[in-house]
C-alpha cells in the first residue's frame, strides 16, 4: 500500500434544518495510488463525504488531513488543486462553449500561462481520447464523451486524487466502460488515486479497497474479497453482491464443488475448468 494521502478523523456533518447527521463520526484513511470504491444505499452519505473532501462543505467536528495539510476554509484552495471531482450528471458540468474552452476553464482560474494551458488542455484531451473534438460544443456529445471531457477538465489540473461520484450511473453500458477504461489508464500512467462512489458492484469488485457506508456511518472497510463475504449482510443494507459470488453459491447448492471468494467471472470460469478437467 502507498503512503497515507488523506485521513478523516471523527467527521460529523449535518445539513441545515435536518434532524439527523448526514455523516456521523466517520474515520478512515486513503492511500496513495489506490482505487477506493465507496458503496452504500441512497442517502447513506457518500456524496456528502465527497463534498467534504473537496471542500464544498466543512465538517462540524473532526478533521480532514490531505497531504499533511488540515482542511480549513483557508487551505481549501490548495486542497482543491489536489482533488478533482466528476459528478453524476454529464449535462450539469459544462461551462465552456467548446470542448477545449471547457477544459481550459479550470486552468484559467488556477492562473497558469497561456502556453502551459494549451499544452495541458491538449494533453488532457489526448488522454481521454477526445482530442478530435476540440472545437465541438459539449452538448452535442454522447453521455460517455461528456464525462470523458469532464475528466479531462479534472486531470488538466494535475490532481493527486480524482473522485467519481456515480459518474457512470447515467451512461449506457458502452459509455460506462469508456469512462472506466479512461480512469484505469490514468491511474496506471500517472499514479492517480481514485475514489469511486458507485452502485456498480462489478466495478467495486475490481477496486483495491472498499468502504461500505450505511446511514451516515462507515459500516465496514476492507478489500473486496472481505466485503463481499458479508453477502446477506450487504443485501440487508440495500446493496447487492457480484454475479460470480451469487453464481458460486447457486452452484454449491447444486453440488458443484467450486470454492468461495470468486469476485470475477474469469476466476469462477477457471475454477470450473479445473473441476471439469478432474472429472
Amino acid at each position: 500500500m502507498g503512503k497515507k494521502l488523506v485521513s478523516l478523523e471523527n467527521i460529523i456533518f449535518r445539513y441545515e434544518g435536518q434532524s439527523r447527521n448526514a455523516l456521523d463520526d466517520v474515520s478512515f484513511d486513503i492511500y496513495q495510488g489506490e482505487w477506493l470504491a465507496i458503496v452504500g444505499h441512497n442517502g447513506s452519505g457518500k456524496s456528502t463525504l465527497a463534498k467534504l473532501l473537496n471542500g464544498l462543505q466543512f465538517a462540524h467536528s473532526g478533521t480532514i488531513m490531505i497531504n499533511d495539510q488540515i482542511m480549513t476554509e483557508e487551505t481549501v484552495w490548495d486542497v482543491r488543486q489536489k482533488i478533482g471531482m466528476v459528478f453524476q450528471n454529464p449535462d450539469n458540468q459544462f461551462v465552456g462553449t467548446t470542448v477545449q474552452d471547457d477544459v481550459a476553464f479550470g486552468l484559467e482560474n488556477a492562473g497558469v500561462s497561456q502556453q502551459v494551458m494549451v499544452e495541458r488542455v491538449h494533453g488532457a484531451l489526448n488522454k481521454v481520447k477526445m482530442n478530435a473534438f476540440l472545437n465541438q460544443e459539449p452538448h452535442h456529445l454522447s453521455g460517455g464523451q461528456k464525462q470523458r471531457v469532464a475528466i479531462a477538465g479534472v486531470i488538466a489540473l494535475q490532481p493527486d486524487i480524482i473522485i467519481l461520484d456515480e459518474a457512470t450511473s447515467m451512461l449506457d453500458p458502452r459509455g460506462r466502460e469508456e469512462v472506466l477504461e479512461t480512469v484505469r489508464e490514468l491511474k496506471q500512467e500517472n499514479e492517480i488515486t481514485v475514489i469511486s462512489i458507485t452502485h456498480d458492484l462489478e466495478e467495486a469488485a475490481k477496486a483495491d479497497r472498499m468502504i461500505v457506508m450505511n446511514q451516515g456511518q462507515l459500516y465496514r472497510e476492507g478489500p473486496p474479497q472481505d466485503i463481499f463475504e458479508l453477502e446477506e449482510e450487504l443485501i440487508a443494507l440495500g446493496l447487492d453482491i457480484p454475479f460470480s459470488v451469487k453464481l458460486t453459491k447457486e452452484l454449491q447448492k447444486n453440488g458443484v464443488r467450486v470454492v468461495n471468494g470468486h469476485l470475477t467471472e474469469e476466476e469462477l470460469v477457471k475454477d470450473l475448468c479445473e473441476l471439469h478437467s478432474m472429472m
Binding site: 453464481l247 447444486n254 473441476l275
Partner: peptide, 23 residues
C-alpha cells in the same frame, strides 16, 4: 470448456442447474 448448452439461461438458478448437467 467446450461444453454446449441447449438454451440460453435467463436466471442464476437455471444456469447453475445447466452447468451441473453440462459438467
Amino acid at each position: 470448456l467446450g461444453v454446449r448448452f441447449d438454451h440460453p439461461c435467463l436466471n442464476i438458478g437455471d444456469l447453475a442447474i445447466e452447468i451441473d448437467k453440462a459438467m
